[in-house]
């Protein structure tokens, strides 16, 4: 008994060491086997990218509000935030981009939380407002995304020759948090089918859009966007 007890500590250490060594060994072993290098072609620029959304099939899925994406997406979604912190404008940060465009929405919005608190009208709105902590700089972040969305649509909009200044139609866009366009609905027609179709085409070609990472901000502003097309720069 006494002899065995004396062996106990070294034995424990040896087992532990073996376990660690075996663990390291097997961890490395699980990686794929080595590949043979083969003849090289001309050097070409390649970028390593993690595909967030599966590209091949882009069938429009009927969208329920709470869960934005099926299966794979939540995981990649979690991964998404670090990158924008590094390169893309973070939604919460106040942005200087396109100040003249976000001027109109910025004006009424700062008052909103206080008004809602005072009047206690809409619980959901209050939640949405609270979710993004800093109420004062949120509209500006929204504004930069809004400006980007506008610019993308403008750059894709080819008006048909039958379009006239003063025509106007409304489209409602349904977006998902990846910025993809799920559906476009014609809410109000201009009366000219070609004009309506040109607007719809502009939106579909402009998609996908940049949208805020913050789910609360996205839900509050970008899940559903109403776009009014009313040209004022046409010849007629």
């Amino acid at each position: 008994m006494a002899g065995l007890r004396a062996y106990l500590w070294p034995l424990a250490w040896a087992l532990l060491f073996h376990a660690v060594a075996l663990g390291l060994f097997s961890a490395n072993w699980s990686s794929p086997p080595a590949l043979r290098q083969s003849s090289t072609a001309e050097p070409m620029m390649a970028e390593l990218l993690t595909l967030v959304a599966p590209a091949p099939k882009a069938a429009p899925k009927p969208k329920a509000k709470p869960r934005p994406a099926p299966k794979a997406k939540p995981k990649t979604q979690k991964k998404a935030p670090p990158a924008p912190l590094a390169e893309a404008p973070a939604p919460a940060r106040p942005e200087k981009a396109a100040p003249e465009r976000n001027a109109p929405p910025a004006a009424p919005e700062p008052e909103k939380p206080s008004l809602q608190e005072v009047l206690g009208t809409d619980f959901e709105d209050a939640l949405a407002a609270e979710a993004s902590s800093d109420a004062s700089d949120r509209p500006e972040a929204v504004g930069s995304y809004e400006a980007d969305l506008m610019a993308r649509i403008v750059s894709q909009w080819s008006r048909p020759p039958s379009a006239r200044n003063g025509m106007s139609c409304d489209l409602r866009l349904a977006l998902v948090p990846t910025g993809e366009l799920v559906s476009v609905t014609l809410v109000r027609s201009s009366g000219n089918a070609a004009f309506d179709r040109s607007a719809e085409l502009a939106v579909r070609r402009a998609a996908p859009f940049q949208v805020p990472e913050d789910p609360a901000v996205f839900d509050a502003y970008f899940r559903s966007v109403t776009v009014t097309f009313s040209p004022n720069d046409l010849r007629y």
Binding site: D122, V142, I153, W157, D219, T226, D233
Partner: peptide, 12 residues
């Protein structure tokens, strides 16, 4: 605020 961002496009 109920999820409605209204945007007006006047140019193409």
């Amino acid at each position: 605020a109920r999820g409605e961002l209204a945007i007006e496009i006047t140019q193409g």
